[in-house]
Amino acid sequence: MIFQLILIFIMIILAVAASLFKDLINAVVACAAVSLITSILFYFLQAPDVAMAEAAIGAGLTTAVFIIAIRKTERYEK
């Protein structure tokens, strides 16, 4: 139980950090870390199917799509 509490605490801090970063690549990597922690929480909530989908999609493909979009536009938030 205390392990999940620590994970949720780290997740909220990462989400706040993603909103504060000026470099969009850093924000996207924090977003991927939030997705990874979410997939661990799904596993603790007895949902292995959803955990697998979130780990493959949220942490992998979403990050790739964001980084391709940032490469096509601009990297820093002004």
């Binding site: 989400a15 993603a18 909103s19 969009l24 924000a27 996207v28 977003c31 939030v34 979403t62 964001f66 979009a69 940032i70 536009t73 938030e77």
Partner: peptide, 9 residues
């Protein structure tokens, strides 16, 4: 892009 990150959250 920040707004799209917010929608993802």
């Amino acid at each position: 892009i920040k707004i799209v990150i917010g929608l993802n959250f």
